[in-house]
Design a binder for these strands. Structure first.
Lengths: 251, 251
DNA sequence: ACTTTATAAATGTATATACAAGCTAATGTT
DNA sequence: AACATTAGCTTGTATATACATTTATAAAGT
């Protein structure tokens, strides 16, 4: 389970505000950012409580609280006697966290492939501006991607992206890497919402998804925040016969 | 916001094991049970940290941890200077927690009504036994209920219930109280899972839901645990034109 | 009557300390 | 060489203490 311990504990708070939030919260935020941005990989070892105490000159209980809460939130895992580690990505996954369709397909043992139908930059329309919480003249990206599992369409993805927060979105090749992966490192998600409903897609969409016009689809509209700004809004269309959403909850 | 403070702090742990779990965990469990079973109502005041300290003769930090974690889990809400209170049921609700359709309808300002189409006791079939994780000769209840919002069908609910865990299920009147409410006090839910998909219902179901046969529906299959036993398995059918699932997530 | 000020109560955070319990690796013994 | 023991590091929990912040209430002043 163990790897090596990250080094730079000094100046750990360098790129974070040092006034408003309590110590434990800032430590949580700093660690969560390392994990969300991929700088710390799953199963990698996190500095021990004693190391944090020495490096940051804070009480062990303060460090303990930060690590304990991150563990409760599924960011870290801890093992008595061993240490603290970055959690596996969807270990005890929260609800309905199908953010990366490529991983989802791979985890089922399927072959994943994508076609990029559209990717262009422009100014936001009124509807898009409302969706993203920005002004209408602000730059955005629009992309349409069709995702395949074993050469059968599994998801049609229409996405609008805030170009200020993710400036390199237009330079990505989404047949190689899903938007989710790029967006997570460009502007790590802190919050999100989704709206799920059953719909009958229009003729063009049925054509793309290779389904009959009477086949119902799961439509998921999702918006994700980074801090207090909306990074992206997406509409995901899944053929009902090829896709189910699974969720698990406790307490 | 404040009500009156519950009295019996003595013997609070009376009906709980007193050996294995740490103090803070037992306190959490005891409070969560009071809330889940409805003995403590939303917005009702919970004893202050100081009161718990005096009553249980434990450290304030221990009580603080229990209350703080229950707050993070959405069971309680706290306000500095004021006190600790039982949280509103779906305050910052977890994901897709549409457990009680009556509340859902009411929160939208709609008029709720239900028709009980079936309610009978019997022995579990093979499929039902597998679903509930029991043996095939064990007693179960089966119920079919149609829920209305403003006199339009909003949910068709087929439910199987473990009769051992919820023995009085058959005596309930589900036109007055949803199964969820009874089941929560009979065997408080600790875990659950759901499977969401888009389907086209059969002729009878379309008839009941008053929709055309080409209208897609959201189908939710849900199982809920109490401890390590499955209490109930339900299949919920929602007309796509009248129902959406909304979820919100953080971190 | 109204405003201001003090006071008390409640939660929020931080620290120091202590001991329990789990895991690993070094050490010692047979 | 094989095994048992021990020491050291790790997380887990519990306590006592201190001070900050927020809120409501009571008292004092105008």
């Amino acid at each position: 389970m163990a790897d090596s311990t990250p080094s730079l504990l000094d100046n750990f708070f360098s790129d974070l505000p040092d006034t408003p939030a309590p110590i434990y919260a800032r430590l949580k935020q700093a660690i969560a950012h390392k994990v969300a941005s991929g700088q710390w990989q799953p199963n990698q070892r996190v500095p021990s409580e004693a190391e944090w105490v020495k490096a940051l000159n804070v009480s062990r209980m303060t460090v303990n609280r930060a690590l304990r809460e991150l563990t409760a939130e599924g960011v870290l895992t801890r093992q008595q006697g061993l240490g603290t580690f970055v959690a596996q990505k969807k270990a005890h996954s929260a609800l309905f966290e199908v953010h990366n369709i490529a991983e989802e397909v791979a985890s089922r043992g399927g072959v994943y492939r994508a076609e990029q139908l559209q990717l262009l930059r422009g100014k936001a329309t009124v509807e898009e501006a409302v969706n993203l919480g920005i002004r209408t003249n602000q730059e955005i990206f629009r992309s349409v991607i069709l995702h395949f599992e074993n050469d059968l369409p599994i998801q049609l993805e229409e996405r609008t992206v805030n170009a200020v927060l993710a400036p390199d979105y237009g330079a990505q090749d989404f047949t190689r890497q899903t938007p989710y992966v790029y967006l997570m490192q460009a502007a790590p998600m802190t919050e999100g919402e989704h709206l799920v409903e059953a719909v009958l897609p229009n003729e063009r969409e049925c054509d793309l998804l290779q389904i009959s016009e009477s086949e119902p689809c799961l439509q998921i509209k999702r918006r994700t925040w980074s801090g207090d700004q909306i990074v992206t809004a997406a509409r995901l269309l899944h053929p009902g016969s090829r896709f189910q959403l699974f969720g698990h909850f406790s307490r």
